[in-house]
Every structure is written in structure tokens, then in C-alpha cells.
Design a protein around this nucleic acid. Sequence first.
DNA 1: TCCCCTGGCACATTTGAATCGC
DNA 2: AGCGATTCAAATGTGCCAGGGG
Length: 547
Amino acid sequence: MLQEKASVVTDDSVTGAQTEGPPELVPNPSHLTLPTTPSIPQGNEPNQNIESIKVLLHERELWKKFHEAGTEMIITKAGRRMFPSYKVKVTGMNPKTKYILLTDIVPADDHRYKFCDNKWMVAGKAEPAMPGRLYVHPDSPATGAHWMRQLVSFQKLKLTNNHLDPFGHIILNSMHKYQPRLHIVKADENNAFGSKNTAYCTHVFHETAFISVTSYQNHKITQLKIENNPFAKGFRGSDEGDLRVSRLQGKDYPVISKNMVRQRLISSHSHLAGKLGAGVLTGHPQVLSHYQYESGVPLSNSDHQDHLSNPFPPSREPGLLYHCFKHRDNTRHLELGCKRPYLETAPPAAPEDHYFRSAPSYEPPLLSHPYCGETLSSREACMYGSMEGESGAGPGGAEDLTPPSLNMWASVQPYPRYSMQTVDTVPYQPFTAHFTSTATATSVVPHHSASMAPRPQSDLGLYSPASAQRGLTAIPSTSSSSSSSPLVAGSRDRVAHPPLYHRKPGSPLRPHRDFSAFPTQTGSSIRDPSYQYQMGLSTVGAHWTES
DNA sequence: TCCCCTGGCACATTTGAATCGC
DNA sequence: AGCGATTCAAATGTGCCAGGGG
């Protein structure tokens, strides 16, 4: 069984926390343990431990604007990018140490919402969480110098409501509230993580929380998107949008759309989208108890409460929550191959990103295959699906809900409450997202691989559309463009499309990466007092290996 | 009937290949 | 022949809207 110990080093000046061990996938959660006392980081660079890493949210003011209005993110079957995009500035890393940066999006609570009277209101219990997936920054693993050199952008991350999404996009439920998180994992000596003593930390910016929708509900949000998103320029100009419509319809007078009318009527009703949450999100009061920071300053309890209870407080300063823990034991066994979550569908045309799907977490393979990859072949973002077996607790209960053959992902649990308590007594709350260990029994196949036939679940794991596009199937790829930094703001999102992740067992020519699950919290709501730390970040067992 | 989702549309930006000039 | 700058078409990302399904 896997035993985990978490440790946290808190420092008012630090926005990150350190863990001495990698998040691990816990086959048997009941055995998961966390230290009750902070431990001393054991990194090789005493002054450059993970706890000293600081992360600043880029365009924080913009995020705050959205947050105050109640951020909404469109989710579509094909996948939709987030706007504002998730970009961060990282400092405090050891320039020579290699890190892996990844993000995931977890339920902020266990409610379903509806937009009524110009505000979001709870409409019921949340639907089962979607399969948790992780989006690994394409540059990973890279040195601290690389990450700190420029902004780290996750703008290519896409959200979808397609439960069977073959592209590796992050799957969400519409009308639910979510919280993006950033994980920084220190790559081990093998440029992997998931092995013993791998350190990692998680950063949460509350202003990035959002409610997923299939069409915008709050006109205020629509306007903010149009005003700030370059791709929406065509809709800019106060009421020009209406004018455009009128032109399109051959009319010389503005046409007010139904939606516009509705929105405006609603707006006149209440000026506050920002207050929407009042009483609605009663939230996870204790979730942030230990590691919540606001601009580096720990938030007061009341603040926590407020943050949590109201997803979109009018003028809330974004708080940063982080936690970390050290992986002490690496006893996980990779007994189950990765399973393909879906893939009954035709292969994507040619997604530029590479995605990893997590294997079923019944026996989450994790550490045996550390995430290794000095040269991430593609330097492209990767999606990891969590295969955590849903414990049935919390929305989801993947085990019960997902047919093994179709979708082995576990549901994502609501944003967890982070605490450093020992979790031995806490029932395992399967988290969902974790790296797939593809190297072992699983092979990674591009979704649109040659055959496109549904992959066996054991095959689930890495996915490289690009490689497939190039006819490179079943080949673990190395980074073809190791120098590129596709997701770095300011630079083009160049994606090297390395063929990666199509792991062909025994392929001697290309390095393959294995990813163990990076357990995300699932099950209990953030508010759930019983929700313990381990839920927050489960295991990161991914691991690249170079041939 | 209402709410939510889907697919298609037009527009703007981004991307990358092709072309040109030095 | 090599390199960099420019051009241009295709791809991609937007929000809007009509229509459909539960």
C-alpha cells in the first residue's frame, strides 16, 4: 500500500508550499497517511525547495473583473479554451532543477447552479463529476530557469462537456462551479516524478473559479469576454453587435436579440452578478484553513469562509491556496494497464496537444513508472485523465457509473479541503485525475490512431494526436522541439507536435513517458469537514523514461 | 413551456507555408 | 544556397442565434 506523508512549510512570503514527496496514487486509500507535523524539505538545494516557489497569476486584474461578475466558461463538445487564459509567473525555483507544471480543474462544490434573477443560484445537487483530467504544460519537464524566464501559459487547455471526449480536453459538467489548480512537481533524478521524495505543491487562485456553461448566462460576462478576447473583436463596439446583426439581416436599424433583451431586463433587475453567490455557495468553510494566502498573506478564517461560500464575491482579493506533501513510500504496483476511457468515436482530426489518459484506478499504477521525460517530445500540453476509482462518494462514483470499457475515469471530487492531518482515519475519497502509467501494462495510443478502433482500456494512457496525424502510431516520442515553449505567453504557441505518447512497448527508438495518476480530490465536497488533505492532490505517478 | 444543448454562421486572429529580396 | 522579411490562405477561436430535446 502506498503511504503518503504530507508536509507543509508555510511562509507568509511564500505562495507555494512544498512537499517532499510526489503526490501518489493510492491504490488503497485507507492506507494513505499524512504527517501531522511539517517536515523539513529534503531537496538537494536547501534554499531552492518547492516551498520557496512563488506563483503569481497573470492578468490577475482581469481575472478579478470576471470573478466579480461571476466568471463563466463556455464548454462545448469540441472543446473551448478558457478566457481569461490561465497564465502564471513563477519565481523562486531552482534554475537548474527540473519541474513539471500541470493543471487540473476540480469541482468547487457539490452543487448544480442556475442563473436566475441575474445571479447564480443553487439548483440542486451536482451531477457526477466528470472524469478528472490533468493538463500538463507542454514544456514539462523543464528547468526552473525555463519556467521563470517567461510566463507559463495554459491557454491551450480546453474544456468540454463531452463525457466521451477523445481529445483529452478537461471534461466538465455544465452549470457547475469549478476551480482550476496549478501543480508544480519537482522532477526527480530521472526527470520524472512519482517516485520517492518527489516534491510538489499546488496553487489555487480563487479568482479563477468559474461556472461552466454552454452559453453565457450573464450579459456582463459576455461583454467582458468580447471586450478582452481578441478573437471576439468582431462583436465589439458597445451595441455594434446588435448593429451587426441588423446588417446581417439586411436591416438598417439595430436588432435587439432575445438574449440581449433578456440580459438587459435581468440587468435592470439586479445590478449584481457579483453578489450572486450570496448564500448560494455555502461552501467549504474549512477548506482553506491552512494554506490559503492572499498575496502571500494568509487569509483569515472569515475570509476563507467568504471565499468559499461565495464563488464570485464582488471585490474579493484572490487568495492563493497551496498545499504540499511528501511522498514517503512508493509501494504502488502497476498492475493494471491504462484503460482507454472512451474511444468509441472517430479520432480527432489532429489535435495539437498530447494527452494522457489515466488508467483505471482500481489498482492505480503509479510510481512504478515515474513521469520521466527530459525531453518531452512534444513539449506539448498533455492531458491526464484520472482513473481514480470513484468511491461512490461524491458526485460520480465512477465505479458504478462508468462502464469499464468506455470510461474508466473516476469522477473528480469537489475542491478539497486541505489539511495536514493524518488521513488514516479518513475514508478514501478517490480523486480523479491522475497520471496514467502507460509504460507498464498500458500503451498509449493516439485517438485517431490508424485503426481508430476503440482502444482497450488497458491501452488508455497517452495520446498523441499529432503523432497519429503523422502516421506515427504506437511510438513513444521524444520531443521534437525541445526548445520550444509553446505555451509561454508572448511567444507563439508553437507546438511541436511530437508524436508522443503513443507508446509502443519495446520501442527502442523513442523514449516513452509513463504517467501515474495524479489523484485529484474527488468525492466529498470542499465543505465536507471530513475531507482531508490527501484528497487535494493525489498521486502523481507519471513518469517519463527515455529510451 | 422552460431550460439547456447543439450545430452552423460570420468575423477576427493565429498559424504556417509560399514567395520574394538580399 | 542560405537567411530573413513579407504575403496570403487555411486553420482556429469567438459569440450569436435558431432549432431541438428533455
